[in-house]
């Protein structure tokens, strides 16, 4: 899955960093959000493709899953000094309505390489104002990062 560069744009935010992401499908949205995040952190074009990781996420809302997905990737980046540029969403089951609905699950394989020097340190992806919307063009979301 190779998202287009136009799949996200930066939004003005006084203190932190915010993006608007789009995707034709929900898996595209998740992949594009991750790619957008890493475009801030590293030069994606210069990143080698030498490492693969598997990421699993559970959540009770699509928004919560999107935040957790990005924060899981940030955790790997900080612990293993890796960044990623390819995101293969292998399974994505959206959650049902709480409290009885089923938990949502995501399974992804991500490819990238060593990135010891980061352009920017992101503390976390936040839930702020986060709403995954669906329209005729697919899915969109605005994500604020604490930087």
């Amino acid at each position: 899955m190779r998202p287009e560069a136009s799949s996200f744009e930066e939004i003005e935010h006084t203190a932190d960093w915010a993006i608007r992401v789009r995707g034709a499908t929900l898996p595209d949205l998740f992949a594009n959000a991750a790619r957008a995040m890493y475009s801030l952190v590293v030069d994606l074009g210069a990143l080698p493709l030498t490492e693969t990781r598997t990421v699993e996420v559970e959540g009770v809302s699509v928004e919560g899953m999107l935040v957790k997905w990005l924060n899981e990737l940030l955790y790997i980046t900080e612990m293993d000094h890796l960044a990623f540029s390819r995101f293969h969403i292998e399974a994505l089951d959206a959650p049902g309505d709480p409290p009885e609905g089923p938990i949502g699950r995501l399974l992804a394989r991500v490819e990238g390489g060593p990135a010891r020097e980061l352009r920017k340190y992101i503390k976390a992806a936040t839930y702020h104002g986060l709403s995954v919307r669906r329209d005729t063009d697919g899915y969109s979301a605005e994500i604020v990062f604490d930087v």
């Binding site: 959540g59 009770v60 809302s61 919560g64 935040v67 957790k68 924060n71 955790y75 503390k123 976390a124 839930y127 604490d146």
Partner: peptide, 13 residues
Amino acid sequence: HQICTDYLERFER
């Protein structure tokens, strides 16, 4: 940062 992240997720549940 991780404490905040992990507890927000737990609170959402």
